[in-house]
């Protein structure tokens, strides 16, 4: 009886151990991107851009060309690559500190210019690599090392909903939010990511998928409790689903 492999490491991921903390769902979104590249046959003409953040070492994990970008500037670097080589598939893989804070201008303008790139935006409501500081996406009352008594919305405002914010731009785009906290949502997020890359492959529009993600280490709770925390706290505030499609209506 022949043995059929039904699940294995995608070719677009290198056979290396990733440095992410135990239970950190970055590893899942890495795999989803890699699976999308494999299934769409894009790996060999893809260039990724990993800016500063937990995912800065992504170039060690993906089996495709990569740029390491300075903090917040991945959408600009990706613009440079895509404009130089429109035939290549270009994606950025960014965290919430990188994209929603220092890189806000870059992401808004890349989206507004309609750069034909794909942005994988991992939102775990905290700065991971630097040790758990408050991010623009940190929840009200959530404790972080720079808001030790919990985020005070009078002082630091409310968390930014990037998918909605970018969807307000007029330039056509595919913008959606998924989550990595449950098998079902992982499967649905994979579909969103794949669709984002398809839009790029067809040269249709800018695409961004926001992935709600956990950070057990800096949230200070176990990986499995983190999934529950995400579900109870982040999900209500960051509703999942497709926010914008180039066709204009909820396709």
């Amino acid at each position: 009886m022949s043995e059929l492999t039904v699940f294995k490491r995608p070719e677009a991921l290198l056979p290396v151990t990733m440095h992410y903390c135990p239970g950190c769902t970055h590893g899942i979104s890495h795999r989803l991107v890699a699976e999308a590249l494999d299934e769409l046959g894009l790996r060999e003409r893809t260039v990724g851009v990993a800016p500063v953040g937990c995912s800065v070492l992504a170039y060690d994990y993906f089996n495709c060309d990569f740029h390491e970008a300075s903090h917040g500037r991945a959408p600009a670097v990706a613009t440079g690559i895509k404009r130089a080589r429109p035939d290549l598939i270009v994606f950025t893989y960014q965290g919430d500190g990188d994209l929603a804070s220092i890189g806000m201008a870059e992401i808004v303008h890349a989206a507004n210019r309609g750069e034909k790139i794909t942005v994988i935006f991992v939102n775990n409501a905290i700065y991971g690599m630097t040790g758990g500081q408050m991010a623009p996406t940190t929840m009200p009352g959530q404790v972080a090392t720079t808001c030790p008594l919990g985020r005070d919305t009078n002082l630091a405002g409310f968390p930014i909903r990037m998918a909605e914010l970018l969807s307000a731009l007029v330039t056509p785009a595919f913008i959606a939010r998924g989550s990595l906290h449950s098998p079902l949502e992982v499967v649905k997020t994979k579909a969103l990511i794949k669709r984002a890359f398809q839009y790029q492959r067809e040269g249709t529009c800018f695409s961004l998928v926001e992935c709600l993600s956990t950070c057990p280490t800096n949230w200070g709770i176990t990986p499995t409790d983190s999934l529950k925390w995400l579900e109870e706290n982040m999900l209500p505030y960051y509703p999942l689903g497709i926010k914008k499609t180039p066709e204009g209506k909820e396709a």
């Binding site: 260039v47 851009v49 740029h67 970008a69 300075s70 500037r73 600009a76 670097v77 990706a78 613009t79 440079g80 690559i81 895509k82 404009r83 130089a84 080589r85 290549l88 201008a105 870059e106 808004v108 303008h109």
Partner: peptide, 19 residues
């Protein structure tokens, strides 16, 4: 670009792609 910061990083992307 939206700023000189962005312009210089676009340079980085394009130059790194061989242009």
């Amino acid at each position: 670009a939206e700023s000189e910061v962005a312009a210089s990083n676009m340079l980085y992307g394009a130059g790194g792609s061989g242009a």
